[in-house]
């Protein structure tokens, strides 16, 4: 076998990249880098295990995670939107947040032709400015030992039998309000009915917990029997031994999609496309499903039957999926938060 000059050079570069991988400030990774703005914790780890290490790094691209909660990263994207060179090449956010950033003109429209996996995206989840990465639906979690007749709807939380046993996570004020709106005949375009419903629930002594974790503890100690929650989180809690089952409420299954997009001022746009493509990889997506209980967003990602039974929606349930009305939310989110804080919780 003859080694050409070109091969020798690229081999040498790869060897150098390996050698210098741990050294800061030294040029490495022949293909440059990609900066991914993401959550830390499970999400960041799973990105590393399923995407960065097996798919993107072998292409010679160095992946840097810029880890923070959504709010600081949103703020960074908004603050940087006028600058020429931004921090992130890939921005990971929930669909509602992504819409807000997109409205502020901070994202590139995606050229789907550059994504080899674009064809596989579930059509309902397609957006011109972001790819869907994982998704889940808002369901009603209940304790099967205490709530003996299986609930069917969010409206069951108003059953006086469950006085003092309905709990909410404070940080999910927005979806909690939506659940109340749906139960009261509202929709994603109209949260108004939630106001009366929430005040009624207040009379039924509904509890509010400061965080999802505090709510989980209350479910575990059986202080709380019913709560609206993301199906994926319910799955994780069940794995953790918390006595809950879920029901896809008949009023509708509100979806949450975690998306990824490329900011206008990204410095490594090509690598960002490579990264987005890797996020749509079928195997990577099943990895997320197994660990976090979120559903794949591509048609060819197949889940094991046991897992699918836990986290998937049946066809009938899928027909009840409702997507957020982003525009309505953006305009009314402040009012929803105000009502939640000042009237419901007061």
């Amino acid at each position: 076998m003859t080694i050409t000059r070109r091969q020798a050079l690229s081999g040498g570069a790869a060897a150098l990249a390996t050698l210098t991988a741990g050294l800061p400030g030294v040029a490495r990774a022949a293909g440059g880098r990609v900066v991914v703005g993401t959550w830390g914790g499970d999400y960041g780890n799973l990105l590393r295990q399923n995407i960065d290490e097996p798919i993107v790094q072998p292409k010679g691209i160095e992946v840097l995670q810029d880890v923070a909660n959504a709010d600081p990263r949103k703020t960074k994207l908004l603050a940087e939107r006028q600058t020429r060179r931004g921090t992130f090449d890939v921005a990971c956010l929930s669909d509602t947040d992504m819409y807000l950033i997109q409205q502020q003109n901070a994202l590139q429209p995606l050229e789907m032709g550059k994504l080899s996996r674009a064809e596989q995206i579930i059509p309902a989840l397609q957006k011109p400015y972001a790819i869907p990465h994982i998704y889940s639906a808002l369901v009603l979690l209940y304790n099967p030992d205490k709530v003996t007749t299986r609930p069917t709807a969010f409206a069951d939380m108003w059953d006086p039998k469950y006085k003092g046993r309905v709990g909410f996570s404070d940080i999910l004020y927005n979806t909690n309000t939506l659940a109340a709106a749906l139960a009261g005949g509202g929709s994603v375009h109209d949260y108004k009915p939630a106001e009366k419903m929430l005040m009624d629930l207040r009379k039924l002594d509904a509890k509010v917990y400061p965080s999802n974790e505090a709510l989980a503890a209350a479910l575990k100690s059986e202080e709380v029997w019913l709560t609206p929650m993301w199906l994926a989180r319910g799955f994780m809690w069940k794995q953790g031994g918390i006595p809950v089952r879920h029901v896809v409420p008949k009023e509708g299954a509100y979806s949450i999609v975690f998306e990824a997009a490329i900011p206008k001022n990204a410095r490594n746009t090509e690598n960002a496309y490579t990264y987005l493509d890797a996020m749509l990889d079928a195997k990577a997506q099943t990895g997320f499903a197994r660990q976090m209980g979120y559903l794949p967003t591509v048609k060819d990602a197949k889940l094991d039957p046991d897992l699918a039974q836990e986290i998937s929606l049946t066809e009938e349930e899928e027909s009840r999926l409702v997507t957020p009305d982003y525009e309505y939310l953006q305009k009314n989110l402040n009012g929803i938060l105000d009502f939640w804080n000042k009237q419901f919780k007061a």
């Binding site: 404070d170 509010v208 917990y209 400061p210 804080n341 919780k345 007061a346």
Partner: peptide, 10 residues
């Protein structure tokens, strides 16, 4: 206040 006051205490 956030951790010990809970959501109702501001």
């Amino acid at each position: 206040p956030v951790l010990l006051g809970g959501p109702q205490f501001k």
